[in-house]
Amino acid sequence: MPGSFPEALDHMLSNRLSARSKQGAKALTTTLISILILLLGALIVQPRLGQRRLFIDDRHVLTPVEVEALPAGTLPVVLDRRLGQTETSFAYRLLQLVMERSGEPYAIGFSSEVFPQDEVMNALASGLQKGDHNSTGITVGAYGAGVQLNRRLRPIRIPISGGLLGLRAGWTNASQQPLLAEVRDLKDLRQLLLIQGLGWSDVEILDAAGLRTYTTAPHYLFRLLENQRVQLFPRGIAELEGESQEVHRSGREIVLDPHLLVTYPFAGFFYVSPANPRLAKAIETGFERAIADGSYQALLEEVIFTPWLRRHLKLRDRQVIHLRNPEAALALADVDPRHWIVPWRALDQKQITRGSQLCALPRLRELCL
C-alpha cells in the first residue's frame, strides 16, 4: 500500500491511466475486428454481386445504351443470359447462326446483367423493347416450352436442340450399378429413388409417372448420391459433360450410369415479345434456312455431340424407358415433325426400347460413333 497522499495519488492516477489504456486497447481491438468483419463480408458479397457480369467478354454484351445507338432498321437481338452462359453456349451460338441466315440487319449480344427470369418474362410480355416496363433491354429468351408461356409470349416453334433436352442419362453411386443393370421397364424404375433439384420442372413429369423422386437444393444433389441415399440423378445428355468436373470434385464413387436412358417430350423455344413480329420472323426464317443447309446439324454435332459425350454416354447399349409428358405434348403440338431430332412418336408408341435403335437414326448417328 502507498504510505503518503502523493504516493496514493500517484498510485490512483496510475491505476486510472492503466484502466483507460486497457479500455482504449479493448475499444481499438473491437474496432479492428469490426473492420475485419466488414472487409471479409465485402469479399464474400462482391463475387456474388459480380456474378452478373462474370465469365463473359464485354464484346458479347449488348447494353440498353448500345441498343439506343443502333442505326435505324437494325434489329436488336439481346439474349436473356443465365448464370454460367458464355458466347460459346449452344443457345447463343445458334441464335448467332439463325440471325446470320435471316437476311436481316441485326446486332446481337447477351443482356448486360443476369436478371431474374420472371422479371425478363414480364418485360417481354409488356411489348416494349425499352422504357419503364423493360429496363433490361432484352428482346429474346431461350426457355422450356410451356402452354402458359406460349400464350404469354411469342414462341418460335422450332425446338432449340431438336428435343435432345428430353433424353436423360443419370449419375449414380458406383455401388448402385448392379441394381440399375436389372431395370428393364417403368415398373422396375419405380422401385428406385431418384433425385432432382427443388423447383425443377422435371419433378412433375417424374411424379406423374409414379416415380419416387426426392428433391433438394442443388449443392446437396451429388452429396446424397455419394452417401447412397438415392440411386439415380437423371440429367439431360447435353448437361453431362459440363457437370463432369463437379462430379470429379464430389467424390470418386459417383459415375455415369451406363444402363438406362429415360426419355420424355421436352424442348426449349426462343421466345420474343408478342409486339415484335419482325424479330420472330427473322429467327424463324434463319432457323429454317440453317436446318435446310445443314449448318444447324453441324453446330449441334460440334457443341453437343462432343467426343467426351460419345465416349461416356454409350447410347447404343442403353435400355430406353419412355415417360409421357401431357403438359409438353400440348405446348409442342404445333412443332413441325421435320424439326424433331428425337422421334417422339415412335418412343410414345413403344417402338423404340433400345439405344441401338436411336443410333440407327441419321441425325443421332454421330452421337454413337
Rank of each mutant, 00 (worst) to 15 (best):
M1T: 14
P2W: 02
G3C: 11
E7C: 14
A8S: 12
D10R: 14
H11D: 12
M12R: 09
S14D: 13
A19T: 10
Q23D: 09
T30E: 11
S34P: 01
S34Y: 04
I37Q: 02
L39A: 13
Q46R: 09
R52F: 00
L54D: 00
D58C: 03
P64K: 07
G73N: 08
G84F: 00
S89T: 01
R93L: 11
L95K: 09
L95W: 07
L97E: 06
L97F: 03
M99C: 01
E100C: 04
S102P: 03
G103S: 05
E104P: 07
Y106Q: 04
F110I: 00
S111D: 00
S112C: 01
S112M: 01
V114Y: 00
F115I: 11
D118V: 15
D118S: 15
D118L: 14
N122K: 09
K130Q: 15
G131T: 10
T136H: 03
G137A: 03
G141E: 05
A142S: 10
A142W: 09
G144Y: 14
G144I: 15
Q148N: 14
L149D: 13
R151F: 14
S161G: 12
L167A: 03
R168E: 07
W171M: 08
W171R: 04
T172A: 08
N173K: 10
L180P: 00
A181C: 02
V183Y: 01
V183A: 02
K187D: 14
K187P: 01
R190V: 11
R190M: 03
L192D: 09
L193F: 11
L194A: 05
G199C: 07
S201V: 14
S201E: 11
D202H: 05
A209H: 12
A209W: 15
T213D: 02
Y214A: 11
T215R: 13
A217N: 08
P218S: 04
H219D: 12
H219F: 13
L221S: 01
F222M: 14
R223L: 08
L225I: 09
L225S: 02
E226R: 15
V230L: 02
L232N: 05
I237C: 02
E243N: 04
Q245H: 14
Q245A: 15
Q245S: 12
E246F: 07
E246C: 00
S250H: 01
S250P: 06
P258N: 11
F266C: 11
G268M: 15
F269C: 02
Y271R: 01
S273P: 04
A275N: 08
N276V: 08
P277I: 14
A282F: 10
E284I: 10
G286I: 09
G294P: 10
Y296R: 11
L300S: 06
L300E: 02
I304L: 08
P307C: 06
W308I: 03
L309V: 08
R311N: 13
Q319M: 06
Q319W: 03
Q319N: 06
I321A: 00
H322W: 11
L323K: 03
R324L: 13
N325F: 09
N325L: 11
A328Q: 09
L330D: 15
I341G: 01
Q357A: 10
C359M: 08
R363E: 02
R365Q: 15
L367W: 03
L369Q: 13
